[in-house]
């Protein structure tokens, strides 16, 4: 018993992380079509709740319903930036190609949802604030994150694929993640037009969202998370396949050269 545990017990942190990331990746890969269908079902449920179940907010009316895509988009943006951060740190530590691919794919999804957060926020702000954009702390720091990710993706697109590019991109990914706590806490650190968190208010048990709105938001958060996991695993699988095909093509080219 002890000898079998000793056999499987990782000998170093490096071995532990390699095993963990390998196994997690393979489990996710095999489950990705299920995750995809579950995400579709949950998205349908979310929008059914938003359109037909959750009541209209009495002061803002219809524009308040943008909340159910704006907040989950921001949540997904935070999650993607978190994945980029962890994958970038792991890449700098271990230099495993899989971590670099995870960071690159998560950055793409993060950029998409950062853009959607900004656009849906502007469309919500237009009728409520009277203008789509104000240079307040929350909006400006989110815009800075959007610019960092635009730079990250352009850099990855224009630069050649090698170890140096992966290393520089990992540093940009880590620097970009520093902006997330600033975005999140900006409404508390500075007086902003953007409202404070309304989901759960500390020291006020009766405050926060009404139950119907909270349930709809939680369902939306779960479905958006599933969408994120599906998109990420699908993209990572594609990038891995591209690398493997490239390798096979190079071997075939070499063989063809030797044959002639």
């Amino acid at each position: 018993m002890i000898s079998s545990i000793k056999k499987w017990w990782p000998r170093s942190w490096r071995q532990f992380w390699t095993t963990l990331d390998g196994r997690t990746y393979h489990v996710l890969l095999h489950m990705r079509s299920w995750i995809g269908w579950l995400a579709v079902g949950m998205m349908v449920a979310t929008f059914a709740l938003v359109f037909w179940w959750v009541p209209l907010e009495s002061i803002q009316g219809y524009p308040q319903k943008i909340f159910y895509i704006h907040v989950p988009s921001a949540w997904l943006m935070y999650s993607a930036v978190g994945v980029v951060f962890v994958a970038s740190v792991m890449y700098l530590w271990q230099r495993t190609q899989l971590w670099d691919i995870f960071a690159r794919c998560a950055a793409e999804i993060g950029f998409l949802f950062c853009s959607l957060t900004l656009v849906t926020g502007m469309l919500w702000g237009s009728p409520i604030w009277g203008k789509p954009w104000v240079w307040d702390a929350r909006l400006t720091s989110t815009f800075v994150l959007w610019l960092i990710y635009l730079g990250y993706l352009l850099f990855r697109m224009l630069a050649r694929r090698d170890i140096e590019v992966g290393r520089i991109a990992a540093v940009i990914g880590i620097v970009g993640a520093i902006d997330v706590p600033i975005i999140h806490l900006s409404v508390q650190w500075w007086r902003t037009l953007h409202p404070l968190p309304v989901v759960m208010i500390a020291n006020d048990p009766g405050g926060g969202l009404p139950t119907s709105m909270l349930v709809t938001l939680l369902v939306a958060l779960v479905s958006f998370s599933l969408v994120f996991v599906y998109l990420l695993t699908q993209r990572v699988w594609q990038e891995r396949t591209i690398e493997n095909l490239g390798l096979l093509e190079a071997i075939l080219d070499r063989k063809a050269e030797h044959a002639t």
Partner: peptide, 10 residues
């Protein structure tokens, strides 16, 4: 109008 536009863009 804003609500529908936001959902369509999303």
């Amino acid at each position: 109008r804003y609500y529908l536009t936001a959902y369509i863009i999303f």
